[in-house]
Design a binder for these strands. Structure first.
Lengths: 194, 194, 194, 194
DNA sequence: AATGAATGAGCCTTCATTCAT
DNA sequence: GATGAATGAAGGCTCATTCAT
């Protein structure tokens, strides 16, 4: 598959992603995307229904990839510790492997974009939460995990990794992914084990 | 600076904050702020140099308040546990007491606004980080806290509280501030104690 | 009242009228109006909510003037002949005195514009029809006018004058208003007298 | 020109007519016509040189049909009364039989379309006028018709029928074609007989 | 200081038309 | 001949900002 065949849609998506990262969603104009993608204005509107739709598709693709890889990563874990460490490690690894997508995820106005996204997106988001809670709940019940509201589980597991990611993606953290994944996994497990 | 002028500025700031929360920074127009504040267009430009400046002042004031109250809260703590719990509790309390400001902080395009803010803002932000690290470092050295890069300390302490705050402010967390502050403080301390 | 004080609104209306006459409503752009009126784009939108509103105001003003002068002209008539001739003569005179407004009335997409106009417009239009029918009906009943559906009265009275006006306004009729008013009034009266 | 090609052209013309009637000429897009006709964009441009050309062909065909049927209808008339009544009756009948074409004729921007039409169109239009005047002039000279400028003949004959048609086609006339043709023919003859 | 009419650059989007396949 | 992706000029409109009063 030559780069010619990569398709206009992908070129536009890629260009849009870069623009969104540099200037933010609102500040990015169709013209910015046009210049960067090489597509004409009309081409962009031939491929997408509007600026919303471009961002929504980026968001959907990004969330989708994150969700699928996260679930795949956690599927093989059977212990509470494996789940907790796995979730943290996956987050850090994912951010390290796709820093642009991660930055986009952190800085896009998700609330607004999600309503513009395909219907499935919000549903799938909710499904993920349900699936994760289902994975963790048995271990809470079995007292392998500290007793706490399930709604605080994910914040405790993922929150530190997100904060690290924000500073690291902004180039303001001296601690790289390799060290972060180890330390943050330790910390999360220490915070949650019974 | 007469108290009249203060009043006018504050009315505008307050109106702008509400608009920013409802529609987002970019989607808010000067006209929105004009209608809500009762000030004329000219008045707004007499009091502020532009839309950026209004948001920047809001941002600076908000960060300032957060920083000052945080430092005040931590000053009286001498133990590692006190510092860790204090930081978490302060964050949750602050969000609970000023949810609008918190929402604004989370959803405004900080990167853009900070460059528009008074020069001091970014410097003060860095100063805070330095001050916090200075408070915690002795306890790391004294092995009261787990040995880890100081750049991961704050993520571990504040990350979970931020994630909780995001969902709670969006009305999607069943767990309120009272319970969150307790559980999250426990978790943070468990994660960090040596 | 100097021409300066004539007001932006009027300048814009006048410029728009000329544009609409030259190119038609749809083909006229805001930019055309801008160039012709000397107002800036923003000024036009400060004075009117959009292109529709400009045309709607022109339409409303034109119809209003026509209706008021027509009713005033017919008020003093008491005989059937006076009414019939009066209506025809008024039409021809009005077209001759305000040919631009008349052209606009004939060639604008009235159906579309009326829905954009102030609510009152359509109502007043209907009122006029009712008023006219009320003026004529007694004479039909008194057999001073041929018995025919009232819905055909106005077509018979005004139809020929409109056709004449269309060709004359297009510069394609050798017959001017003075002769037309006489001949058409004669014809209308001959067509309708019992 | 194969019958296939004829079919394609006709499908496009038919689809375009419906679109023009529903949304007006300017508001109708090639895409609208594409969807309705089932032809591809390219096909439409293969069959017609552009949007103008489609409307112009519709206009030319419509005018052509009207002119041919009118002349055929009047050819057999030898008296002044027959001509006058015949012209009115033909107009009403034609509108009743092809209301869509009639609506199109009344609401399309004829001035613009005529310049886009085949050169013949305007010429033929003028020819018709000449032919009609030639038919009527002998009767004026023979004093079977009231003495009046020939340029007012057609307005008096056709004007009322056009006004009736406008309101009837807009669904706002309680008087249908059967009654209108009779009453309007009577009125026209009464208006014109010597 | 206050006002709000005026400004005009710039935005998103549409759409007639072209042209490679 | 047919197709539909691509084009890009142009349109209506918004809005931060200025400035005469």
């Amino acid at each position: 598959m030559s780069s010619d065949e990569r398709g206009r849609r992908d070129e536009i998506l890629e260009a849009a992603l870069k623009c969104f990262l540099e200037k933010g969603y609102d500040a990015t104009t169709i013209n910015d995307i046009r210049e960067r993608s090489g597509a004409s204005t009309g081409s962009i509107y031939h491929a997408f229904s509007g600026k919303d739709a471009i961002a929504a598709e980026l968001l959907a693709g990004t969330l989708d990839h994150w969700q699928r890889t996260l679930l795949a990563r956690l599927e093989r874990e059977t212990t509470a510790e494996g789940l907790v460490r796995g979730a943290v490690e996956h987050f850090v690894d994912w951010v390290a492997q796709a820093p642009d997508r991660a930055r986009f995820l952190f800085h896009s106005p998700r609330a607004r974009l999600e309503s513009a996204a395909q219907e499935g997106l919000q549903a799938r988001n909710a499904e993920l939460l349900v699936a994760l809670k289902a994975m963790f709940r048995p271990h809470v019940k079995a007292r392998a995990l500290r007793a706490l509201p399930t709604s605080l589980l994910l914040p405790i597991i993922v929150g530190p990794a997100m904060e690290w990611a924000r500073t690291w993606l902004a180039g303001r953290s001296p601690t790289g992914p390799a060290e972060a994944r180890r330390v943050l996994a330790d910390a999360a497990w220490a915070a949650l084990r019974a």
